[in-house]
Design a protein around this nucleic acid. Structure first.
Lengths: 340, 340
DNA sequence: CTGTTAGCGCTTTCAT
DNA sequence: ATGAAAGCGCTAACAG
């Protein structure tokens, strides 16, 4: 009941073990130059008090770091990004580092705020899926010796390590496959063109259409869906067009899932058959895609690997010595895969 | 290029603004008793240097805390838990606190390690989905005045705030509905009975069966699936039984998704029709459940709300004054919902 | 209104 | 093999 509601310090451990704080410190950092029997006493006191070194106090000493990595993502609840976070966490844990996680909700102001907070907590580095297109806060971070790794999206004018996907190439190959499958009316559902991936995936889509001489019908292109609900609405509109698409390219999993949900709902009315609906192509694989009532293929890639790679880029810069090396830009390949 | 690769301190800001460190400190904490024009100079210096107060240094002062909340969950990549994490993050952000996130991979040793690390970083409190059934590390945390909130699962003998679901009630009602729907051969797919939720959901299932006088066939009960893959294998076995179930209760989303995947795969062979497969009941809603080829209903609840509630319990204890109040046990209701 | 002093928890440096 | 002093960045408490 009346246990000490208070975190023990070196001093208290020292007192209990009948030694000086320095002896405790030495014991805890390996025990060089501490008599074995004294170490025993110290460790016993540590265990009894449940002592943990105050990492915050340790981190303010010159030349020492917090062992924290700040991770700012746009939406933790999106399985894609949570899997990404897992990859980062795993890799960081290998070096004993922990993750400070923040959600930007795709809001640039919130991102800047978050980054400022992370810097205040003296993170060793930052991994960011940028919601912003300007980057003073990130440049500041780098100027202060806190490296930044951008993931999934790059920012114009910011010389930072980055790992992104082969967005354009994947979209091009996927769209080309649709065209070669006989489709000529192909719709597009994506997030805003102002977003790095949105722009690149759209570009790949357009290039494929132009390369094969297929017309991009502006009525079949919707590019502002951020959520599944918005994607559903956009799908409904596409399906209602006078001359609806026979295939739809969905530029990310939110849009693909929205499309599937809308198709599924319309099928449930029993008025139309699966064959009346467009085939789908999704940039991003996602769980249960194989249950699609219409044929679907995905442009596949592993968010966990994206996270791992981002972490490795950062850790390499932190521990690998060369903090001043020029920015490295990694582009992970994607693969086209028929699911149904 | 040759920017200072170094984080500025109060001293440097003070020097640049031609004042003492105290004036900088005062300005940054509201500016009481600092001449407006001096404040201007200070803020200018802050902006020019990109200064951020060192929160780690601030946190070691007596009576001050880190503003960090340690969150240990079993699997960030599971959308259920990532949505939970989002709920925690949102609520924590309202009080200016950040989240330190760790993945336990359902491993008790890793959890203890993680908690130790969190304590070393002087978290204000812990939110844990326990992988452990013993709790010395968590009890230690509480004894040191660092409150612990358990989420989704409780631990016997640990008097900590907790928020869990109405597992037994939900399972009972769902199973009862299956029986009332005419099923008498009902299978069970769940995680280990040694896990809090596993035990409770199984108990609700059994109670419903017994209440309605339906026999629980041990051949149709599989309780050790942790992953979707394992759930698939278990489903395959159930479907192969001499007298297979006409309905399956899936005790969580991993198991429901595994069952769906297996059924979907078998359907793809074209040898059997949807009607040849069991109806499903899932404890946990999940994205795209409505695409199920067989009828499915879910015992629904909101992981985000679970996260928010856990955070509120913690923050209330931290900021609400009464840190010594007896442990509060919250049980969130669930609702039964037909999906398809 | 502004500055000086002291000390938070820890460990490096310098004795002993 | 051990301890004392000093200082990391910051801000209460105390001058002025």
């Amino acid at each position: 009941m009346s246990e000490r509601a208070h975190r023990p310090t070196v001093k208290e451990v020292a007192q209990r073990a009948g030694v000086s704080p320095m002896t405790v410190s030495r014991t805890l950092s390996g025990g060089v130059n501490v008599k074995p029997e004294v170490q025993q006493r110290v460790l016993a006191a540590v265990a009894e008090l449940g002592y943990h070194r105050n990492e915050n106090a340790r981190s303010i000493r010159p030349g020492h770091s917090s062992g924290l990595i700040g991770v700012a993502i746009t939406n933790i609840a999106n399985p894609y990004y949570s899997t990404f976070a897992l990859g980062v966490e795993e890799e960081a844990a290998l070096t004993g580092r922990r993750i400070l996680l923040g959600n930007t909700s795709e809001d640039a102001a919130r991102e800047a705020e978050l980054v400022g907070d992370f810097l205040g907590r003296r993170v060793d580095g930052l991994i960011v899926v940028p919601a912003s297109t300007t980057s003073t806060h990130l440049a500041h971070s780098q100027n202060q010796g806190v490296p930044v790794v951008l993931a999934s999206r790059r920012i114009d004018g910011l010389a930072a390590d980055s790992v992104v996907l082969a967005d354009e190439d994947g979209a091009f190959r996927g769209t080309t496959a649709l065209i070669d499958g006989g489709h000529t009316r192909i719709g597009y559902l994506g997030n805003a063109l102002s977003i790095f991936t949105g722009e690149r995936r759209h570009a790949g889509f357009v290039r494929a259409m132009e390369t094969r001489g297929v017309r991009v019908d502006p009525h079949l292109v919707a590019t502002n869906q951020q959520t599944v609900e918005q994607a559903r609405d956009a799908t409904r509109a596409l399906l209602r067009a006078k001359n609806p698409p026979t295939a739809i390219f969905c530029a990310n999993n939110r849009n693909a899932i929205g499309a599937l949900k809308e198709i599924s709902t319309q099928l449930a009315t029993g008025l139309r058959a699966p064959a009346d609906f467009p085939e789908l192509l999704s940039f991003d694989d996602f769980e249960l895609a194989e249950l699609s009532p219409v044929p679907i293929s995905v442009i596949d890639h592993d968010p966990r690997e994206l996270g791992r790679t981002a972490a490795r880029l950062l850790l390499d810069r932190l521990d690998g010595g060369d903090r001043e090396a020029p920015a490295r830009e990694v582009e992970l390949p994607v693969s086209l895969r028929g699911v149904r």
